[in-house]
Design a protein around this nucleic acid. Sequence first.
DNA 1: ATAGGGTTAG
Length: 860
Amino acid sequence: MASSTPPTLTTSKPYQNHHIQGIQNHHRRTANGHNPHHPSPKVSLHPPPPKTSTANKPPVPATAAPYRNPNFAPLSASKSELAADFSGRRSTRFVSKMHFGRPKANGSSKHSVVAEDALHQLIRCSGDDRLIDSVLLGFQSKLCGSDDYNFLFRELGNRNESSMAIQCFEFAVTRERRRTEQGKLASSMISVLGRLGKVELAKKVFETAVSEGYGNTVYAYSALISAYAKSGLCDEAIKVFDTMKLANLKPNLVTYNALIDACGKGGADFKRASDIFDDMLNNGFQPDRITYNSLLAVCSGGGLWETAMNLFNEMSYRGIDPDIYTYNTLLDVASSGGHMDSAFRIMAEMPTKNIMPNEVTYSTVIRGCARSGRLDQALSLVNEMKYAGIRLDRVSYNNLLAIYASLGRFEEALNVVKEMESTGFRKDVVTYNALLDGFGKQGRYDKVKDLFKRMKTEKVPANLLTYSTLISVYLKGGLYQEATEMYKEFKQEGLKADVVFYSEIIDSLCKKGFVESSALLLDEMTRKGIQPNVVTYNSIINAFGQSTDTGFTVENEQEIKCLPSVIPEGDADKKLDNRDEDRIIKVFEQLAAGKLSIVEKASKGRKEIICVLGVFRKMHELEIKPNVVTFSAILNACSRCSSFEEASLLLEELRLFDNQVYGVAHGLLMGYRENVWVHALSLFDEVKRMDSSTASAFYNALTDMLWHFGQKRGAQLVVLEGKRRQVWENTWSDSCLDLHLMSSGAARAMVHAWLLNICSIVYEGHELPSLLSILTGWGKHSKVVGDCALKRAIEALLSGMGSPFRVATTNIGRFISPGAMVAAWMRESTSIPNLLILQDDRAYPETPRLNHPHLQPLSL
DNA sequence: ATAGGGTTAG
């Protein structure tokens, strides 16, 4: 396929990033691979045949077992890497997920009773180094070897006495003569520190051990790798691994497993993990269950559902039985990617394999349900869980109350809190943050203030998240005074802002229309050494053209410049240094004082595009990789442009970021549909690998943009392709059309196609169902300003055609008409089909050379 | 050496 690339797709790029290489690589592979392209993009107005999914069935091994079964999707498949790259999962996720000090599951500790004695005596002399040494001296002869010391290190660590643990370690290691025993002590100490998240201390112990001559063991290296893994420091773990090879030590299975684990916890691309896996195979190691479980965890971070399924199948092919970890991790991949039907199927399969779902299983799937809006299912799972005799733990409770709180169902949320407390769990910071967020989003500022006070009286310390939640709640509510107070308190507490903190403030300001102030903070965070990420940028790009009541001016124009790169570097630096200011405070105080006010609309548009282009420039400078959300945002921004010229400035950004996406968007926009359709299809293949809301958002953005600029037929083709791929998970039947997940452009294109289909039923002399209905919901998925109420757009469309559809009295998001009336309307006028058939404003004849046989014109 | 929780874009 696609060997002759049209010129639009080969334009050179300002910088080659992995993403673009990923796409190219991917295409090379799939072109020869086992996963042939969609056979025919022939457009039909009829619903596609039900998708026959093979993803869930284990492939049948072709012949006698090869070393690696070629039937399985290659582990090093670049498509996985691409999907991970493209989907824009948050990179900070794993750090926030860590919980250190989780007690070890296997309770078979090999320590002696004496060790427990020693522990208690040691704890009593906390803080007195000499006393500690004398206690240790007293026990020296009675403690038996590394098992006892391991116990001491771990227990002291769990009691927040890691410096005492290290003292014990030093005591033991200096009195130990045997190298191997010293080595064991060191590995044990390293892994204890690692588990506590004290990776720097672990590293120190390791380095000392190496220089003293007892640390050069595969165990010490593996322990350090694992320590980095637990802190999500994948790069560091890999560095240790490389050093290990240089030191002529052979990694073992545990080393490899720890390294793969590091990839998962560090949010690395799947490619990295699979390279390690390949290296492992090449060195003659057979992967075990933990290897696969760790690989599955990498999929979870990258949202790689297909890859996870392949791995799961590959496991059974190798005869490795899944365990509860396998299932829970697999469920995590499914649930976090929105594949809830698969999640339920897998969960139902567990008991048949004699693996019973536990509280982790349930909370994983419940969370997935909640995220994909399946509230009823989430709640019935909670009941199922209770019925099965699985007690809710802290995570489950917090999970559940967060679901209620986020829906504004506070009574139920508070009931969960009560139940949680009656079970013996006190409210923790997670509980409070969820409640604050929930009440805040509903504008219940009285409750927010109340809760925050309660938090203090109950001595639950507020953390970074608490403050960032509060600040953005107040900003979005226009309570600038309160936002300022919270920010001041946050600084007083000595908490450090991070990228998420800034991003949230930036987003809140954007949502209030203060795009330029946001750009200012973007500038400041960079200077303070906090790297903005793609989410930060996407917030600002999304804000482009979103009109709000509030514009932006400053009393002193010189004071604020939104285009950091335009200011000569030196000047800008000097400005900041001279004042040593905190711009957040400055912006907040201006807001509170009402000094940021409305600006003339015409000049606002111009200012904004300059500002956003400056933001793009900085994104390039920092080499921040855009993701599909960025692309959707750019396309949505195009839809908000009033002129083609303005839109092309934005499209140019798309081109600089990604030629394939640009090629498709631009090609369809310009009417080169026939030439780019093959590329469009392969782009849609990529998009379909993402979670469903990401995928539908992209389709929505692309169709809105095409529709906005008059390429209605192109928009329709995209929509039909999306429908074929079940992007919107919606129904299309002869009696009902469900548009509720679609943007207004996509929905309108869809309505045309659907009515045309109805028309053909009528013209063929068949009877229509007695009632036809079109569901719109509330149209929150369209980003086109002034066009954003899907319902209104559809209403206008339907009435404009003189159709008999009317809003249902029982459901304002639904248009209905008796089938007979629709049939009468269609028969009445011969011009209906012409009304329904969409045309592109710009269309070019097909280039004969690229005339693909499957690109036939749409026919009735 | 392996599993679930709270924060940012859509």
